[in-house]
Structure formats: C-alpha cells, structure tokens
C-alpha cells in the first residue's frame, strides 16, 4: 500500500495550501478592519486639541486655533435637507413606477439601464452638470439649493434601487389579497407596499444621504466657498409668514469642503483642524451607516411573511 502513502502526502500538501489561503484571506480582512479603526482613531487623536465646543460654534478663521466649523455643519445640514426633500419623493416614486406600473417594454428597459449607468457616473460629472445647468442655465447660483439638488441627483439611483428591492421583497400573495378585496393599484401601493417597505427604503435613504454628506468633488465644482464667515438666512422668522426660503439662495460651505480647505494648507496647525473636521465627518457618516446597518438587521429579524 505505498500508494496510500502517496495519497496521504498529496492530501497533506493540498490541505496546507488550503490553510495558508484561509490565513491570507483572514489576514487581509483583519488588516482592512484594522485600517478602518486606525484611520478613525488617528483622526480623533490628531483632531483632539480642536474638538471642543468652540470648534462647533466658530466661523473659519485665519488663525487655526480660532477656526471652527459653524458655517460648515450648518451648511451641510441645510444642503442635506434639500437633498432629502428632492431625492426621496422622486426616487421612491421612480422605484414604485418601475416595479409596479411599468409594462415590460423598451421604455421601461431604457429607464432601467439608465439608472444602472447613472450609478456608475463619477460624482464630479454631476458637479459639471450642476455648474452648467443649475448655476448658469437656471440661474440658481452657487447656492444651498444648487448643492442640494446636485447631491439629490447623485443619490437618486441609490434610492431608486433600494425602493425597488424593498417592494420586490414583498410577497405577491399580499398584493393578491389586497387586489382580491377590490383595491385599486394605488390603494395597494399606498396601503400595503409603501408601509411594508418603509423600513428598507429608510435604510437606503440613510445610506444615500451618508454618501451625499461626504461628497466633496461635485460641491467644489459648483463653487461652494471655502471661507464663509456668515450663516444663511434663518428659515424661521419672527414676523409673518414666519417661514423664509431665502436660505436656499445663500452661498454656503459644507463639512468636506472645509476639511479639504484645511488639508490643502501647508501649515501644520490647520492640519489639526482638518483632522478634527475629519473626525466629525467620520462620526456623521459612520453613525448614519451604523444606524442603517442596525435597522436592516432588525428588519431582517422582524420579517415573518
């Protein structure tokens, strides 16, 4: 039985390769996770000297230790508001149309292929689109509104795709049950498909917005300012009609641009500011993603159909 010895040696060798590979795979994944942790930690450590209350309540300044992110975080909040208000209804409506209404014809195929392709267009191209279309053709200027709409177009494919997936996951038996009661198509959508897919759609919207928060390139292209020492007009007024939309037209800056501005300065002092801004930015995006991942986990557990 010398053959058996050979076979055993062969198996041993193959198992060795197998185990080496498994170790390499595990190693790569661990390194990736370690880098994530190191990066986050490093940001927080480097930025620690600036991470105090003044950093959030100060405008940018020529002197690094006085410079803060007040105009940036308020700008980011306002831009995200516009992005959400524009992208969510349009994205969800598109998703519903493609999944429930569109007949299988060339038009539906065209829209579908188009959504896939848009998801692959580099973000800076959206910036060029916005520069030509929103800033100049529509005369919206280098404003909060322009930035919000640009980022809305950017995350539209994310919202559309998650809406479609969420609606597709609802079993057909529930649609049939509602139709069999005499519901119209819109009643089925409104009473069943939207409520049941709400959580999944929300997850997609959060992920889309977290991507928009970190987007820098398109916002630079439309001419976000890097030094803004004032705030947009307040949306709430003390006199009638109490609400104002002037802030939509205001020039602005956002978090990633503020950070980019500080990174690109040669003085080491400003790089501390950049790290602090980076820490806040990481906190925002990772926080939103963590919420989305948790939400998705809970939803998966909760589904009984």
């Amino acid at each position: 039985m010398q053959n058996l010895v050979e076979i055993r040696r062969n198996i041993k060798q193959r198992q060795l390769f197998n185990n080496i590979f498994a170790l390499v795979g595990l190693f790569i994944i661990l390194v990736a996770i370690l880098i994530l942790l190191a990066l986050t930690l490093r940001m927080f450590i480097d930025g620690a000297p600036r991470l105090n209350w003044g950093f959030f309540s100060n405008f940018p300044s020529r002197r690094a230790e006085n410079a803060g992110i007040l105009s940036a975080w308020i700008g980011t909040t306002l831009v995200m508001l516009v992005t959400a208000v524009a992208a969510v209804p349009v994205g969800v409506a598109s998703g519903i149309y493609l999944e429930e209404y569109a007949k299988k014809n060339w038009l539906a195929d065209l829209i579908e292929i188009n959504v896939t392709n848009l998801a692959g267009v580099p973000s800076i191209i959206y910036g060029l689109l916005a520069l030509g279309l929103f800033v100049y053709d529509w005369s919206l200027g280098e404003s909060v509104l322009t930035a919000g709409l640009t980022l809305a177009l950017l995350i539209l494919p994310v919202v559309i795709v998650t809406t479609r997936e969420a609606i597709r996951a609802i079993p057909n038996s529930l649609r049939e049950a509602a139709y069999a009661m005499g519901a119209t198509k819109w009643q089925v959508v409104q009473d069943h498909l939207l409520p049941y897919s709400f959580g999944s759609i929300l997850t997609g919207v959060i992920i889309g917005l977290s991507r928009a928060i970190g987007e820098t390139a398109p916002v630079i292209t439309i001419g976000a300012l890097t030094f803004i020492a004032f705030l947009p007009d307040s949306p709430i007024k003390s006199e009638f009609p109490f609400i104002s939309f002037e802030w939509l037209k205001a020039p602005f800056t956002v978090m990633p641009i503020q950070m980019f501005n500080w990174v690109s300065r040669p003085q080491a002092d400003f790089q501390v500011n950049a790290a602090a801004a980076g820490a806040v930015l990481i906190f925002m995006t990772l926080g939103m993603n963590a919420v989305a991942i948790y939400l998705r986990y809970q939803l998966r557990k909760g589904i009984k159909w």
Binding site: P171, S173, L174, E176, A177, A178, Y179, A180, M181, G182, H192, Y196, K304, W305
Partner: peptide, 16 residues
C-alpha cells in the same frame, strides 16, 4: 367584480 366576489387563498395571507 372583486368588490362583489371575494377570495380566500391557498396559504393564509393576512396583511402585516
């Protein structure tokens, strides 16, 4: 028609 003639399906399919 569906408002006058209702239906019970093969598998229970209550709404969530």
């Amino acid at each position: 028609v569906r408002m006058r003639i209702s239906m019970v399906f093969q598998k229970p399919n209550p709404f969530p």
